[in-house]
Design a protein around this nucleic acid. Structure first.
Length: 602
DNA sequence: CAGTAG
DNA sequence: AGGCCTTACTG
DNA sequence: GCCT
């Protein structure tokens, strides 16, 4: 039987991932929108913590004293607030500045507004668990930590307003509860499969909604479950998200931050971009943006500007900034990052010819290679050529030692039509085959004239015997630090051509050859397939949620440093292949497996 | 040591 | 207020 | 810039 619970929002704080997941399954009236909640359930015990959580979720309430009754605020009171003279927020009028205003949306909004509770209780977790045990909904008072009255309900939409004014509105509004309504895009039916119950949401006030809705049942917009995590590795990230144009503008700003050396800004924009990539609907309002993980006031304001202007002033200025253009050029040289790009600029250099003429001898070896093949490295590599290069590598590998398996990783595996470089992971069930192999394969490919230069050759894993040795944060120098894989970052050129030219017309390509011992091949494939933000969040997730240390050469416990094997089978038998191993790593980490095409976090 | 790479 | 992924290789 |  189902108990008659109020609408519940669950605070993830102080809950393990498993615990959280289990509770989510158990709560029949779970909402992922805190504004819809009548009860906020949390593994918290002090009022101070409650207040912190409410702030965190951008839910502003005023406390109801314990003697006061908690009758809902009358709707007319709310309405009056919005219709204060001079305010540009209205609850029920919309000038449809976005052109595709849909009356049904407003009706939904109004229904939701009327149904949205005006008071909320924050309750200890025990109330729910003990109610389940008792088979009845226990009196809530004994477990209530806090009762609050929501200070304001939600404006439906913004009227057209000057950007400055609109920004102010957003600023104020963001301090208030988020809207429980936003534009849904029935057309963009993502076939994503995240938490299985991803589209669970509470459709409030069905009576009202149904009265005013015609035969088309327009669902209230689902708030995908995966948008309630800050970890990009828990969300599907498609190649071409609905909000790509806005995301492109944000990416311009991020690029500028990169060039200026603003690492934290880069991280912030990357997080916001990753969340927006995962958002499966066309955005309708700034509030919708602010509710996304990694997106706050600033990103919401930028969205507002984008919606009104079709572009972002900051992005535009960055693009027309001559200094940034030069820094960008230099930064695109392989072996040059932001510090050196600025250094070059400060020497007065403005293009590659300046570097060659005035600074050639000051460049490192790899930077010289980067300059020499600048144009060719800028060329994208078509999928067919990626496959061709990879197959040549695999053939050479098997000539040295039959039985190698290979996965083409990187952007190719994520489905990109053209890649910046070629990344392959090679492994072999026989440990003896992978030990010292990276040097052998490089030599073989040099002798076949495919590899023209070796930029970096890393043999650290081989040197430590390919063993995932126990790790302790402090005792690293000992040479037994368990970490990176053997790899070769090389320059590649197909030595065969038929056009009769004297000079080889084939472009030079960047190729990364990664060698993994079999028992960590799943980690290697996982680590080298995903976008940067996915990777970063995967490590952060392992650290914060699992007390594990992930890297592409293995997983260890942070408690005692011991190696954690998710890849072997139940009886310790090795994984049958590298892709199975990768799936087992997802599973072992408590993450849902995702096809590589959904790991495009940017 | 600072800088760079994926 | 402090954290934000990670560490080996290069010069 | 956002989260805890």
């Amino acid at each position: 039987m189902t108990l008659d619970f109020p609408v519940i929002f669950l605070l993830p704080t102080n809950l393990g991932a498993d615990e959280l997941h289990e509770l989510e399954e158990q709560i029949p009236t779970l909402t992922y929108d805190i504004n819809e909640a009548e009860v906020i359930l949390g593994n918290v015990h002090r009022k101070q913590r409650v207040l912190f959580e409410l702030r965190k979720h951008k839910l502003v309430t005023e406390e109801i004293s314990t003697t006061e009754t908690d009758e809902p605020t009358s709707p007319s009171l709310k309405r009056r607030r919005f219709q204060t003279p001079g305010s540009v927020i209205t609850e029920d009028s919309d000038t449809a500045s976005d052109g595709d205003f849909h009356p049904l949306l407003t009706q939904s909004t109004q229904s939701t507004l009327k149904a949205a509770p005006t008071t909320v209780k924050v309750v200890k977790l025990a109330w729910f668990t003990e109610s389940l045990k008792a088979g009845t909904v226990l009196p809530i008072e004994d477990y209530t930590l806090y009762r609050g009255r929501k200070q304001q309900s939600k404006p439906a939409k913004l009227q057209q307003a000057s950007p400055a004014k609109a920004a102010n509105i957003i600023k104020r509004a963001l301090a208030d509860p988020k809207p429980s309504s936003h534009g849904s895009r029935p057309g963009s039916s993502h076939s994503t499969t995240s938490h299985g119950r991803r589209d669970h949401f509470i459709t409030k006030a069905p009576a009202l909604l149904h009265m005013t809705t015609s035969e088309h049942e327009v669902e209230l917009p689902p708030i995908p479950a995966y948008l309630h995590t800050t970890y990009a590795c828990q969300r599907p990230a498609p190649t071409h998200p609905p909000n790509e144009p806005f995301i492109e503008e944000l990416t311009k700003i991020r690029t500028a931050r990169t060039l200026l050396g603003d690492k934290i800004g880069v991280r912030a924009y990357s997080s916001a971009i990753a969340a927006l990539i995962s958002y499966p609907y066309l955005l309708q309002s700034a509030f919708e943006v602010a509710r996304l993980p990694g997106c706050g006031l600033k990103i919401a304001q930028l969205y507002q500007e984008f919606r009104e202007q079709g572009e972002l002033q900051e992005a535009k200025e960055d693009e027309s900034d001559p200094r940034l253009a030069v820094l960008k050029l230099f930064h695109e040289i392989w072996g040059v990052a932001e510090t050196t790009a600025r250094e070059f600029y400060n020497k007065g250099w403005r293009d590659l010819d300046d570097i060659i003429e005035y600074g050639w001898d000051t460049l490192t070896r790899v930077q010289q290679i980067g300059v020499k093949y600048y144009d060719e490295f800028q060329q994208k590599i078509p999928r067919a050529e990626v496959e061709s290069i990879a197959n040549i590598i695999l053939e050479h590998a098997n000539k040295i030692h039959p039985g190698f398996q290979m996965v083409i990783v990187g952007g190719y595996r994520r489905g990109k039509l053209a890649s910046g470089d070629v990344d392959v992971v090679l492994s072999h069930p026989d440990k003896a085959a992978t030990r010292g192999f990276v040097e052998q394969i490089v030599v073989a490919l040099e002798q076949s004239n495919y590899i023209t230069h070796t930029l970096i050759l890393s043999t650290a894993n081989t040197e430590r015997g390919q063993e995932p040795v126990a790790w302790k944060g402090n005792e690293k120098k000992s040479g037994t630090g368990f970490d990176t894989l053997d790899k070769a970052l090389v320059v590649w050129q197909d030595p065969h051509w038929t056009t009769g030219e004297k000079k080889n017309p084939n472009p030079h390509r960047r190729v990364d050859i990664i060698i993994s011992p079999w028992k960590t091949a799943g980690c290697a494939v996982l680590g080298w397939t995903s976008g940067t933000t996915f990777q970063r969040d995967l490590r952060r997730y392992c650290k914060k949620e699992r007390s594990l240390k992930f890297d592409s050469s293995g997983i260890r416990s942070r408690a005692d440093g011991t190696w954690v094997d998710f890849e072997s089978g139940p009886n310790g038998e090795p994984a049958p292949d590298m892709l199975t191993a990768e799936r087992r790593v997802f599973e072992g980490l408590g993450l849902e497996w995702r096809p590589p095409e959904e790991r495009c976090t940017g």
